[in-house]
Computed example of a mutant assay.
Amino acid sequence: MAVEVGERAPDFELRDQHGVPLRLSDLRGSKVVLVFYPLAFSPVCHGELGAIRDELLPSAPADVRVLTVSVDSMFSHRVWADAERFTFPLLSDFWPHGGVAQAYGVFDDVRGQAVRGTFILDGEGVVRWKIVNEIGSPRDVAEYRKVLEEL
């Protein structure tokens, strides 16, 4: 079942690329850009996360947190984050396999990975905007900036 705008985002705890656990509910008070992507090291994902690093984060208000989620292991995320200088959390939804993506309604059961889903949450953890694209269709980071400005 998909998470819809106006609903409270399902809480979760996943480990980032350094093995540090991160719980979504611990970020209350911050706006959260929650980005699900299929796989590390893939061309479209590289472009999207690069745009977050280069275009979104430098101009984002201090109360905005970016979290990215894929089914890759935290070890894959660490290598990719180090190589690409990603400083935001790359969270591993490895086990149970895709469990968080499933809870948000963005898991592709056939491919065993997330589709491209983004959820923007307000400081109370309520979904205020979302977009879900198929695996091969990139998202536009400019939309994230626009939504965050309106919150």
Rank of each mutant, 00 (worst) to 15 (best):
E4D: 14
V147N: 06
D140N: 14
S25C: 11
P61Y: 10
E134N: 05
V44D: 03
W95Y: 14
L67D: 06
L67M: 05
L34T: 09
E149P: 02
M1E: 14
E55P: 04
W80P: 03
D122Y: 01
S59H: 13
G105N: 07
V132N: 00
A2F: 01
V32I: 15
V132L: 06
L14F: 09
L151K: 11
A60M: 10
G47V: 05
A114W: 04
S137N: 08
A60N: 10
R111W: 02
E55K: 14
G29H: 13
Y144K: 06
V32G: 09
L39S: 11
V35K: 03
D140I: 05
S25W: 07
V5D: 09
L121T: 05
S25M: 12
F12P: 06
M1I: 13
G50H: 11
E143Y: 07
A142G: 13
T118M: 02
P61C: 12
F107A: 08
V132A: 01
L27K: 13
W129D: 05
H97K: 13
L14V: 11
G123V: 01
E150F: 03
V5L: 07
L151C: 10
Q113N: 07
L49R: 05
S25R: 14
L49A: 04
P21G: 10
G123A: 01
Y144A: 05
V79D: 02
D54K: 10
K130F: 00
E134H: 03
S30W: 05
D11K: 08
W80V: 02
P89S: 12
D108T: 09
V110G: 00
T118A: 08
S92H: 02
V64Q: 07
L148D: 10
W129Y: 12
D72F: 04
F12H: 09
F119S: 01
H46V: 10
A103P: 03
I131R: 13
A103N: 09
I131S: 05
N133V: 00
L57I: 15
R111C: 00
V132E: 03
S92T: 07
D82C: 00
R111Y: 07
V79Y: 00
S30C: 14
L49G: 09
W95F: 14
D26P: 08
